[in-house]
């Protein structure tokens, strides 16, 4: 039996630890984020134009109404959704598959895994520039390989049916390693003893995978997907550099459209409203994923 004083001391210690360990993080996030958040929320109810206006006037929910009633915005949301689903979906499958492939160590394992991570170490701007170059219909490396194997050349970035998937391909190239690394770390943390126990019971490979591997790795895996979804939803640099949203508007993602509103048309108020609409959507989406993570944790 612990004495009351000891319990009390333990509580104080825990309390202090919580304060010291969580406090700074929350403080930093509040200090750094709250002003920009409030600032843009406030402006989303005004007609402010950063470059043009000298006066600001309050317009209520007019900006939100305008954006939500704009038929093009919905089209751009759909394009973005398609991009996110294709890119993150493939990243998820490919990344997890790769992690399974790399779970057991072999000679050169460290080198192979490090090399595989290189794509995500580049800045998106650079990736966009060089992939535009690689996907060039005439000088490009990709079409060179296609012709080498006797295939027809593909107009990667200018064929309206293909352009969006070319961007997805580049995103997959860049971010699959991210999913791979996180799931790999998760896989490596699964106690070997569990598999040994299953082996004694003569469990099948499939049984082990479904009952041991998947449940234990899924919280981290979904976490990787969560971060990919958030970031892919905001994807801007790749689209901006590779197609500028074209041809026509087949690759016009929601963040391209937001960019135009804020930086070409200088409609700061409207762009803030749009940013908040995007924010709410992402929050809703993440909430689903976060709940899923919590469920897998039980």
């Amino acid at each position: 039996m612990k004495s009351g004083a000891q319990l009390y001391r333990k509580e104080i210690e825990e309390y202090r630890m919580k304060l010291f360990f969580i406090g700074p993080t929350i403080l930093v996030l509040i200090v750094m984020n709250v002003f920009p958040l409030i600032w843009s929320l406030g402006l989303s109810f005004t007609n402010y134009s950063s470059l043009v206006s000298r006066k600001i006037s309050f317009v209520g929910f007019a900006n939100y109404a305008k954006i939500l009633s704009d038929p093009f915005i919905w089209k751009y949301f759909q394009i973005t959704a398609r991009l996110v689903v294709v890119a993150v979906g493939v990243e998820f499958l490919l990344g997890f598959g790769l992690a399974l492939l790399l779970k057991e160590r072999f000679r050169g394992w460290g080198l192979v895994t490090t090399l595989m991570l290189i794509p995500m170490m580049l800045s998106p701007v650079v990736v966009g520039l060089f992939w535009t170059f690689i996907m060039d219909a005439n000088f490009g490396l990709l079409n060179f390989f296609l012709s080498f194997f006797g295939l027809r050349r593909v107009l990667w970035l200018t064929d309206p049916k293909i352009a969006l998937y070319s961007i997805a391909l580049v995103d997959i190239w860049m971010w699959t390693p991210f999913v791979m690394l996180i799931s790999l770390t998760g896989l490596l943390a699964i106690p070997q003893s569990l598999y040994e126990a299953a082996d004694i019971d003569m469990a099948s490979f499939w049984f082990k995978f479904r009952r041991i591997t998947l449940p234990l790795v899924s919280p981290l895996l979904i976490l990787a997907v969560l971060f990919r979804v958030i970031d892919a939803f905001k994807m801007f640099d790749l689209v901006f550099i590779m197609t500028g949203g074209g041809p026509g508007d087949v690759t016009e993602t929601i963040s391209m459209s937001l960019y135009r509103l804020a930086f070409n048309k200088f409609k700061t108020g409207e762009s803030c409203a749009m940013a908040y609409i995007i924010l709410i959507l992402i929050i809703a989406l993440s909430n689903l994923l976060v709940r899923w993570i919590r469920r897998t944790r039980v």
């Binding site: 993080t25 929350i26 920009p36 905001k234 804020a262």
Partner: peptide
């Protein structure tokens, strides 16, 4: 969730 949401606002607007 608050910590996570700080990552969600498109950087262009802030």
């Amino acid at each position: 969730f608050f910590i996570l949401s700080t990552r969600m606002l498109p950087p262009i607007v802030v």
